[in-house]
Write a protein that binds this DNA or RNA. Structure first.
Lengths: 130, 130
DNA sequence: ATAACTGCAAATCTTTTGCTTACAG
DNA sequence: CTGTAAGCAAAAGATTTGCAGTTAT
């Protein structure tokens, strides 16, 4: 693994929020001003294929870009608030059960799971028509 | 609702497979050769906002485009095979339970749910290394 | 009239690719 | 050596937008 890739991985792991490619590039450039967009995208593709990161859309709340996060031991759902833009995560044994059931009933071999929810968070529900 | 919109809605409802904007446009043009790409996108946005259709990514198995399907009474998961490209749907009471649990525990008001799974279907698993 | 819808062309945004040079095993 | 990685610039693909003309209420 090259220094640039280590840098990118480190940034993704340390980030408290989900980063898109552009944000990741911007942060990376503080450490290595010469790093290129293409390197970021190539590294993201590589990490994704190796199963080290997950790719998210976050319900396209903010354009068509993708967001990334380091793979966690437990799959979790992302809930995106259409009003305030907050992203909440949710993991539960029910989710694990559902996955197990899917595998059992369909024989599908799961490699990646993405469960995303769009709606309104608790705080934003007041005054929301629908 | 205009004639063009009705046409587009009809195509989405009748399609056995998930259509992307380009495919939808192509089909629509058989009936109305003058319909424009922009109209398709504008209509899709409108239908999505009204909750009449769901937008899917199908794990980006085939590029970054989006796919659409008429909203069904029951939310379901899409499983996409990385090898053969097959898309399988999966609905179950466990999924409903999970959603109910999420609502209860987080107070989030769910408007849209998207559960997508990538991996290998039963038939494609033979000979797959990882 | 007034507001919503459409076609057209151009623009925008994100992501990918070809090519050449630089580096690592 | 030989393969992989990186920078750069250009391309590609999907979606959006401004504007002017059209249709519907």
């Amino acid at each position: 693994m090259t220094a640039q890739r280590r840098l990118l991985v480190g940034i993704i792991q340390d980030s408290p929020r989900h980063l898109d490619a552009a944000a990741l590039l911007k942060i990376a450039r503080k450490q290595d001003p010469d790093i290129d967009r293409a390197t970021v995208y190539r590294t993201l593709a590589l990490l994704k294929n190796r199963g080290l990161i997950d790719e998210l859309d976050l319900m396209h709340i903010e354009g068509e870009k993708h967001y990334y996060e380091a793979k966690t031991n437990r799959d979790h759902c992302h809930m995106a608030c259409f009003r305030c833009g907050a992203i909440m995560e949710y993991a539960s044994s029910s989710f694990e059960k559902l996955k197990a059931e899917m595998v059992k009933q369909s024989g599908f071999h799961i490699r990646v799971v993405r469960l995303e929810v769009g709606g309104f968070c608790k705080r934003c529900q007041k005054g929301v028509t629908s």
